[in-house]
Design a protein around this nucleic acid. Structure first.
Length: 724
DNA sequence: AGCACGCCGACT
DNA sequence: GTCGGCGTGCTC
């Protein structure tokens, strides 16, 4: 039943009155459409072309088109043809024609505009849109993958990070796999019994926390886990308590190995079929199958890595993030959401429990406690002392006085601790990762080699050339300011060679290595030297007898706001694998004992460290006390962006400064244009409370910018992970 | 981002 | 009188 003049077929009368002009000259049409829109026309009934009959009930579908661009970050209305009525439910994936190609009214035919993917967000009775609606082209699958909770969360995350909803959904909803979808999911097993608190009794109010979860409460805690392997089981018990209340639980850990630990603990406690494991490396079919079993409610508990933070767990009762300082919790796709922040949003929006745990404490976690948003969950000093190893330091002063150290390249104390430890079990040696730019030190007195102009650290370019990492000046004729020495050594090489020499010094002892290329999961309880880079330390059966931490300079020497916190986190990550002091566990850290992170390690006081850092950052106006965003691009693009952005009145613009080379390289997309043009960066800072206003301002400025098109890109990142 | 529309100059 | 440059604005 196509109309005689080929115009779009109206379903019923033309309620907006514009339909009669539809065949007129385009400019007249545009004019009429304009006036109609301004006059707030009554809602248009959907019309399709070619006379396809429409769904009788709620014939308009609001669709989010799957394009990340910010100025398309809104819904578009489409008509629902009758034959798609049944399948076109809210939340399903659809395909629609989208693009300027379809605008021609000549002859009433609307063709063109490519088919693109989208999500059907909502079915409504009428559209606000004055023009004729295109019809849904296809319902890709009847599976409603985007429920209202997930949509609301994704929306909140997009706003928080000045990104588009489509970008967030790309992270949140895994790609469809038809085979995985066709299997149906079994009904969920009944809720388990509430668990015994087990080792949660070690933490002051730990048992109360579990009891609250089991009773359907929504407690929020920052939990400082005692060193040792107990944490995974403790998380599993919190999950069990939540399941016992009839609700679901979600655990996000930074990598594959901790996923396996929590997975194993959940299997032990709950059996094999009560939880799903969501990791990126599972392969598309398996990934989508597991995700669907969660979405369908067949599985109520989830453990996984960062993409799992969006898992659509039914009736969520608890979210858990383990080791929130790990860089793996920061997504590296736009808009770069962080697991801790997303789970905070979920806890607030869904009124569910929140558990942030780790052996250490980030500044952000300390802030959650300080603001009263979460309660601290810590063990007493006595418990800590009973569980932690003895920590001893070797500073530059000790090294300089230590004749044997200079001869053997290893401090006497470290030597003794290793030798003693190897009699009782495995000994862990933590060395810096390869790829750290080698920092140089005086070969005689070990004073760090510093730039004579700005006191920045000198880096080795190649064989002999030195350059300052801060000001970029070349140093041709270095000599030590402390002792007048002329010989340099690369500390990173020093640490690795030290590890090798240790191996030679104990020829009867096997040497195992764990690092980026090959990560060992566990080592046995027998004597062995285990050389590992930070984060790759294997767990030793029964704990390590001792650990030697040789990468202090690399940890603390970085010109980064997080250097101290990060260094402490990595040391504690190794030291927590060592036996308690009472069982002879000893750690030697080669670093200045006067440094704050070193003292925090010795006293095993990560919370105190974080609290002090937080106070300092508040004083200096640094994040997380203030909110920061980095904006970068070519100088012209950046200037244009800042001129057009209507930043909140309390925003402070710092810079612009040239973008550090490393950062420019990170921000570059593979296949994108080479970052040859000089890039600049500003940091925009707002006081607490103005974070949302800042994100909104940046988002609308970016939307206006990309809508105009043609201009050079500007990169926005809220909460940049490392600020120089 | 694409892609069409529209208003300008060079051509058959 | 017609073709085609790219500047501008929209995509249901």
């Amino acid at each position: 039943m196509s109309s005689a003049n080929g115009r779009p077929e109206g379903e019923g009368a033309d309620a907006d009155g514009a339909g009669g002009a539809e065949g007129g000259p385009p400019e007249q049409l545009a004019l009429i459409r304009e006036t109609v829109r301004r006059a707030k026309a009554p809602k248009a009934k959907p019309r399709t072309w070619r006379g396809a009959p429409l769904a009788k009930d709620l014939p308009v579908a609001r669709v989010l088109v799957d394009k990340g661009v910010l100025h398309l970050d809104r819904y578009f209305d489409y008509a629902v043809p009758e034959d798609l009525d049944e399948a076109a439910r809210p939340g399903v994936r659809v395909r629609v024609r989208f693009g300027a190609g379809g605008r021609t009214v000549r002859g009433g035919r609307r063709e063109g505009g490519g088919l693109i993917d989208g999500f059907l967000v909502e079915r409504v009775a009428a559209s606000d849109y004055a023009g004729p609606l295109a019809a849904l082209a296809q319902v890709v699958s009847p599976e409603p993958v985007l429920g209202p909770e997930l949509l609301g969360l994704a929306r909140a995350v997009a706003d928080r990070y000045a990104g588009s909803l489509a970008d967030v959904l790309q992270l949140a909803v895994p790609p469809r796999h038809a085979r995985a979808e066709s299997r149906d999911s079994p009904p969920p097993p009944p809720a388990p019994a509430a668990p015994d608190p087990g080792s949660w009794r070690r933490y002051g109010r730990g048992a109360d926390f579990l009891a609250s979860l089991a009773a359907g409460g929504a407690p929020r805690a920052v939990w400082t886990a005692l060193p040792g392997p107990g944490w995974a089981e403790e998380i599993a018990r919190a999950v069990q308590a939540t399941l016992a209340s009839g609700r679901g639980a979600l655990v996000v850990v930074p990598a594959g190995r901790p996923t396996a630990r929590v997975d194993a603990a959940l299997r032990t406690l709950l059996g094999d079929d009560r939880h799903a494991v969501l990791t990126a490396d599972a392969g598309p079919e398996r990934r989508y199958r597991e995700w669907l079993s969660v979405r369908r409610g067949a599985v109520r508990a989830v453990v996984g890595t960062r993409a799992a933070m969006f898992a659509p767990v039914r009736d969520l009762g608890l979210v858990v993030v383990w080791d929130d300082g790990d860089a793996g919790h920061s997504d590296d796709n736009a808009p770069f959401p962080h697991v801790r922040e997303v789970l905070e949003l979920r806890a607030s929006r869904d009124r569910c429990g929140f558990l942030l745990g780790g052996w250490t404490c980030t500044v952000e976690a300390a802030q959650l406690v300080e603001t009263g948003w979460a309660q601290p969950l810590t063990a007493s000093r006595e418990e800590v002392r009973a569980a932690a190893p003895l920590v001893r330091t070797v500073g530059d002063g000790d090294l300089a006085r230590d004749e044997a150290a200079r001869a053997a390249r290893l401090p006497t104390l470290a030597w003794q601790v290793v030798r003693d430890g190897l009699r009782r079990g495995p000994v862990l040696v933590q060395v810096p990762r390869r790829g750290y730019v080698p920092r140089m030190a005086c070969a005689r007195c070990r004073a760090p080699a510093r730039c004579r102009h700005c006191a920045g650290p000198l880096e080795a370019q190649d064989a002999r050339a030195l350059r300052c990492a801060w000001c970029g000046r070349d140093e041709g004729s270095w000599h030590c300011q402390e002792c007048g020495g002329f010989r340099l050594r690369a500390q990173v090489v020093g640490a690795r060679r030290t590890a090798e020499e240790l191996g030679r010094a104990f020829p009867a002892v096997p040497v195992r290595t764990s690092g980026r290329e090959q990560v060992l999961d566990t080592v046995s309880a027998g004597p062995a030297l285990v050389v590992s880079t930070p984060g790759a330390e294997p767990v030793a059966e029964g704990g390590y007898a001792a650990a030697l931490l040789l990468d202090g300079w690399a940890m603390l020497g970085r010109p980064d706001l997080r250097a101290g916190e990060d260094g402490l986190r990595r040391w504690i990550g190794a030291a927590a694998l060592v036996r308690p002091q009472g069982e002879g566990g000893t750690v030697v850290v080669v670093a200045e004992p006067t440094l704050r992170p070193v003292q925090a390690l010795v006293r095993w006081d990560p919370v105190g460290h974080a609290v002090r850092e937080l106070a300092e950052r508040a004083e200096l106006g640094f994040p997380p006390v203030s909110r920061m965003a980095s904006v970068s691009g070519t100088p012209e693009a950046l200037a244009g962006f800042l001129a057009s952005a209507e930043l909140p009145p309390d925003a402070e613009v710092l810079g612009p400064v040239p973008v550090p080379a490393a950062e420019a390289a990170r921000g570059r997309r593979p296949g994108g244009p080479p970052a040859a043009e000089a890039a600049e960066r500003v940091l925009v800072r707002v006081p607490p409370g103005s974070g949302a206003a800042l994100a909104a301002a940046l988002k609308s400025a970016q939307a206006a910018r990309t809508a105009r098109g043609g201009s050079e890109p500007v990169r926005i990142r809220i909460d940049p992970p490392d600020i120089g």
